[in-house]
């Protein structure tokens, strides 16, 4: 369809407006990256200039002084195990509830839906008390327990996903002598891998970036999120800005690389994710 002159002009104006917003998104990161190569004195005297020479001292110091390696380890451990456990827990419930009718199955489903509606802010205090009584505060496994909750938007998506997979595959396998476990792990899970992958990626980003849970339940250990937040508060008093910039750059790189590799799939899943509304 041909565009009229007026529409074309409008499109260009809007494109420029979008461009301005895009610059506000990118500029802060360029500012961070550029200044991460400067010495602190150089940065304070002029925040705009390009670094005189690219020195990686800040990056080395960030690793040596700030325990960045430790933060990385904690974050990677929590993300890997937390995502796995959370997805397993949600898929199991979604699969069993969507495919098996048993005593109490519809009650479980109804209760899950009802409790999803209640904002869990109401029970932070009780959750904290329970975690404390179970001795799970300030331990990495404790956080994993929190990530393991089966019911959430993940469950809803996977539930409709498993519903859509025909049971005849399972029947065929059962005739060949496969048991329930084989059917689930060998047939159903692989069939649902597209859905699980999409949901899993969102869970993964969520855990990697999670600030609130480690802030409350991991007071004496650092993940990247809580560690960086502390570094930035320290920087305002110590003035060690450029080191913090380096630490920030390092922390974003893994997600950016991941996004660059799977950009198309991630975007498509988000675009399709609108369906869940």
């Amino acid at each position: 369809m041909r565009l009229s002159k007026g529409t074309k002009t409008l499109f260009i104006i809007v494109s420029v407006l979008f461009g301005i917003y895009a610059i506000t998104l990118v500029f802060p990161f360029l500012y961070t990256l550029n200044n991460s190569f400067k010495t602190n004195a150089e940065f304070i005297s002029d925040v705009w200039s390009l670094p005189k020479k690219f020195n990686f001292d800040n990056y080395i110091e960030a690793f040596e002084e700030n325990n960045l390696l430790n933060m990385f380890f904690n974050t990677i451990f929590l993300t890997a195990c937390g995502t796995f456990l959370s997805i397993m827990s949600a898929s199991i419930m979604a699969y069993v509830l969507s495919k098996y009718k048993f005593w109490g199955s519809s009650l479980i489903y109804t209760m899950a839906i009802i409790f999803m509606v209640i904002p869990n802010l109401g029970n932070i205090a009780a959750t904290y008390k329970l975690m404390n009584n179970l001795g799970l505060v300030d331990s990495l496994p404790g956080l994993l327990v929190l990530y393991m909750g089966p019911f959430g938007s993940t469950f809803l998506l996977l539930y409709s996903f498993f519903k859509g997979i025909s049971w005849s595959y399972a029947e065929a396998a059962k005739i060949d002598g496969a048991g329930n476990f084989t059917v689930f792990f060998r047939i159903m899970l692989p069939q649902a891998r597209a859905g699980i992958g999409a949901v899993g990626f969102m869970v993964m980003i969520g855990v990697w970036n999670d600030y609130y849970t480690p802030f409350l339940y991991l007071p004496s250990m650092y993940t990247l999120a809580t560690g960086l937040q502390d570094l930035s508060t320290q920087a305002t008093t110590t003035g060690a800005y450029t080191q913090m910039f380096a630490a920030m750059v390092i922390s974003i790189i893994p997600l950016l690389v991941l996004f660059a590799c799977f950009q198309k799939t991630i975007m498509e899943n988000t675009v399709a994710g609108g369906l869940k509304g």
Binding site: S15, F18, T32, W208, M244, I266
Partner: peptide, 19 residues
Amino acid sequence: YKILFFLPSIISIVVLAIV
């Protein structure tokens, strides 16, 4: 723009807040 607009949703809120 689609890609750039999406970027904040994968970056940690802590990092976004600091910058």
